[in-house]
């Protein structure tokens, strides 16, 4: 009997483990393409959390559903169940195992975090001396110690993104990045908090007004992605998007050269054009809004 119980429990645990691993693998498909070094690290961690979560969810709900199916009171059965008030062994086990699991998740997350070495604004001051002491665990394919090669200034305003390439003195409303090189951005905002978020890169950073915020990541896949404002910034918040183009270093250089030839012209801007339209036709009920910044003057726009 005892042996039979152990065998059944083991079989259930193995079945659950198989399902959980499968769902964990499936979880990669729920995420956007992996377009940066960081995205691979995040997705591996997420996949692990999905697998562990699936195991727990199926384990707990399976037990509940079993009880619902097989521990029902008969229609005329007014008796009570067994007066079991607790079980110290069980309670210790279900305190200890979650605690250990949480420790494991925390350590794994911490490792992933250091490998990503996302730099927050306040960290930069510390980074100067800390980064020499602790070398980043993640060494390939990009060497962390190499100075970031792309320096770009990102300006966020209500409601437009403008990217400035200081070495070439070029401005653009489309963010162009060379593939496989670490990107270094300086994020700035004029009036309110915006959020710099590229889902395909799995990176996000709030931009606090009146601060220069350094931000780094490494694109590894050519293509066109979306940059979205992730911190609610007022009326036209949802329209504050831009395209991010990751291209080979040759294409990138070519684009820089082309853009340098153009003299600045006004870029299309969804917030500004919607606002202009709204002033013409006031059919829909609406309230006063902060007036959008006028279309940015840039060397390049799509």
């Amino acid at each position: 009997m005892k042996l039979k119980t152990i065998a059944i429990l083991t079989a259930i645990a193995l079945g659950l483990t198989a399902i959980s691993i499968w769902v964990g693998q499936l979880s990669y498909s729920w995420l956007p393409p992996q377009a940066s070094v960081e995205s691979k690290l995040v997705d591996n961690l997420f996949s692990f959390l999905v697998a562990a979560g699936t195991f727990i969810f199926l384990g707990v709900t399976g037990t509940i559903v079993y009880s619902i199916l097989f521990h029902r009171a008969g229609r005329y059965d007014l008796s009570d169940g067994p007066p079991i008030e607790g079980n110290v062994t069980l309670e210790v086990v279900w305190t200890a195992i979650p605690f250990l699991l949480v420790l494991w998740i925390a350590v794994y997350s911490y490792q992933t975090y250091t490998e990503m070495s996302i730099r927050g604004p306040m960290e930069m001051a510390h980074m100067l001396h800390i980064s020499e002491g602790i070398p980043p665990a993640y060494a390939e394919p990009i060497d962390e110690s190499v100075e970031p090669t792309t320096n770009i200034e990102v300006e966020a305003k209500q409601w437009a993104w403008v990217f400035r390439y200081p070495e070439q003195n070029i401005t653009s409303t489309e963010l162009h990045l060379p593939v496989d090189l670490r990107t270094h951005l300086v994020l700035r905002s004029q009036e309110v908090i915006h959020g710099f978020y590229i889902p395909a890169f799995r990176v996000k950073q709030d931009i606090i007004p009146q601060q220069n915020i350094d931000f780094e990541f490494t694109p590894i896949r050519t293509g066109k992605y979306r940059l979205r404002d992730s911190q609610y910034s007022g009326t036209y918040f949802a329209a504050m998007q831009a395209d991010v183009v990751v291209e080979s270093i040759e294409d990138y250089q070519k684009w820089l050269a082309e853009a340098a030839k153009n003299s600045p012209s006004p870029a299309p801007n969804q917030a500004a054009s919607e606002y202009a339209q709204r002033k013409e036709q006031s059919a829909k009920a609406s309230w006063t809004t902060v007036v959008p910044a006028s279309s940015p003057m840039v060397n390049y726009h799509p």
Partner: peptide, 17 residues
Amino acid sequence: ITGIMLSSVPVDIHVNN
């Protein structure tokens, strides 16, 4: 379970907001 995912800094940086 989704709460634990959110508490993990690297995952949260992606799905925050």
